[in-house]
Amino acid sequence: MDVGLFLLIEPFASVETQLQRVKELGFRRADITDTNAGGSMLGSAGFSPTVSLDENPFEVKRLFERHGITPSAVCAHALLLEPSNPGKYGTAEIMKAIRFAAAIGIRDVVTTETDARSEWAQQLTYEESIFTVAEKLYTPVQMAGDYGVRILLEPHGPITDTIRGMQDIFDRLGNPDALGVNLDTGNAWLGGTDPVEMARVFREKIHHVHWKDLGPEWEPKRGTMFGCGFSNIALGDGVIDLQGVCEVLRGCDIESSTLEIIGGDDVLVRSAEFLKDQGV
């Protein structure tokens, strides 16, 4: 399993600057971390590491290649619990991400439902939430299969942070081969699920991993938050049983994974060494 980085190493910096830092740190893979439809003012000015899904994907591929970096996945985290709205990142953007990824040989597009923001979404029943997420993913999943791409659901919301919720979405969509899991160790744990058990249940569906460890100060928030963005400590320094996750995933056919960690260079390097020592 190759280990890469999120392109959010330097604050207020362009994709190119992030790629330079990835290379300097000795990594050779990175997720296309932030994506948007249309144009981004800050992205155009070089103050945000965002990639437009309306960009020529081959230009982005050439940018990565100039720095010797291979893109691991396209991140397309959405608001799948919210009412359909062209102003919200959702089905249309996921479909653009599929086309973008397929054009340049990226296999995986990562998405999730995110926590409910609106009063409407917060009042959904569990069954309504499953239907709402699955309905928004139905066409993208079919399209991903046609393009030879996989949509990977990441634990990052009230449904996907649970094993039952993740499985119910799979079942509602007919358990297609084009739908898999991006295991986020920190998000799963923070949402109240044992990431070791999630890894065990979805072992054959996990095709990418976002690695995080969290310190004891996060324990009072467990079960009340859905996603924390990043960790600021090295893997193995926190309270999450990452050794147990690695034991479950050891030997799986997972091509790449990503460190979702901010901090000093030593934190990133030590985290990569931790995974190497675990044999994944």
Rank of each mutant, 00 (worst) to 15 (best):
residue 223 G to M: 09
residue 81 L to N: 01
residue 62 R to M: 12
residue 98 I to R: 03
residue 11 P to N: 05
residue 114 T to N: 02
residue 231 S to Q: 05
residue 260 E to P: 04
residue 45 A to Y: 15
residue 87 G to E: 11
residue 183 L to Y: 02
residue 20 Q to R: 13
residue 133 V to W: 03
residue 149 V to I: 05
residue 140 P to F: 05
residue 262 I to G: 03
residue 146 D to I: 13
residue 98 I to W: 00
residue 222 R to D: 09
residue 24 E to D: 13
residue 111 T to E: 05
residue 14 S to Q: 05
residue 229 G to V: 13
residue 174 G to C: 03
residue 114 T to W: 06
residue 249 L to V: 07
residue 86 P to K: 02
residue 151 I to G: 00
residue 77 H to V: 12
residue 115 D to V: 13
residue 233 I to V: 04
residue 246 C to L: 04
residue 67 H to E: 12
residue 36 N to C: 15
residue 203 R to T: 06
residue 87 G to K: 14
residue 14 S to D: 00
residue 169 I to D: 02
residue 77 H to F: 11
residue 91 T to D: 06
residue 136 K to P: 03
residue 92 A to M: 12
residue 25 L to W: 14
residue 123 Q to W: 04
residue 42 L to K: 06
residue 160 T to C: 13
residue 156 H to R: 10
residue 91 T to G: 07
residue 214 L to T: 14
residue 3 V to D: 00
residue 194 D to S: 13
residue 243 Q to G: 12
residue 69 I to S: 11
residue 129 S to F: 09
residue 81 L to A: 08
residue 233 I to S: 01
residue 126 Y to Q: 14
residue 164 R to C: 11
residue 214 L to E: 02
residue 5 L to N: 04
residue 161 D to L: 15
residue 4 G to A: 09
residue 54 D to L: 06
residue 77 H to N: 10
residue 195 P to M: 13
residue 63 L to G: 09
residue 102 A to T: 10
residue 230 F to M: 14
residue 194 D to V: 10
residue 137 L to T: 03
residue 8 L to D: 08
residue 187 N to D: 14
residue 25 L to H: 11
residue 253 D to Y: 08
residue 81 L to P: 01
residue 146 D to W: 14
residue 45 A to E: 03
residue 47 F to K: 02
residue 256 S to W: 08
residue 243 Q to P: 09
residue 14 S to W: 00
residue 203 R to E: 08
residue 82 E to I: 14
residue 106 I to H: 01
residue 5 L to P: 00
residue 167 Q to N: 13
residue 20 Q to D: 15
residue 155 P to E: 07
residue 75 C to G: 03
residue 207 H to K: 07
residue 155 P to A: 15
residue 228 C to S: 15
residue 48 S to Q: 05
residue 48 S to E: 08
residue 4 G to D: 06
residue 106 I to P: 00
residue 110 V to P: 00
residue 9 I to G: 00
residue 246 C to Y: 02
residue 167 Q to Y: 12
residue 190 L to Y: 10
residue 252 C to Q: 06
residue 240 I to F: 04
residue 151 I to D: 01
residue 204 E to T: 05
residue 195 P to E: 03
residue 96 K to T: 06
residue 126 Y to K: 07
residue 121 A to S: 02
residue 191 G to C: 15
residue 49 P to V: 03
residue 260 E to L: 12
residue 97 A to R: 01
residue 276 K to S: 08
residue 217 E to I: 11
residue 226 F to V: 14
residue 234 A to H: 00
residue 85 N to I: 14
residue 266 D to V: 13
residue 245 V to L: 06
residue 101 A to Q: 01
residue 180 G to K: 01
residue 102 A to R: 06
residue 228 C to N: 14
residue 198 M to W: 04
residue 45 A to F: 15
residue 43 G to T: 01
residue 141 V to D: 01
residue 279 G to S: 07
residue 111 T to R: 09
residue 77 H to T: 10
residue 244 G to W: 02
residue 3 V to G: 01
residue 261 I to A: 03
residue 164 R to S: 13
residue 111 T to L: 15
residue 147 Y to I: 04
residue 165 G to P: 05
residue 123 Q to A: 14
residue 100 F to L: 07
residue 159 I to D: 11
residue 164 R to T: 14
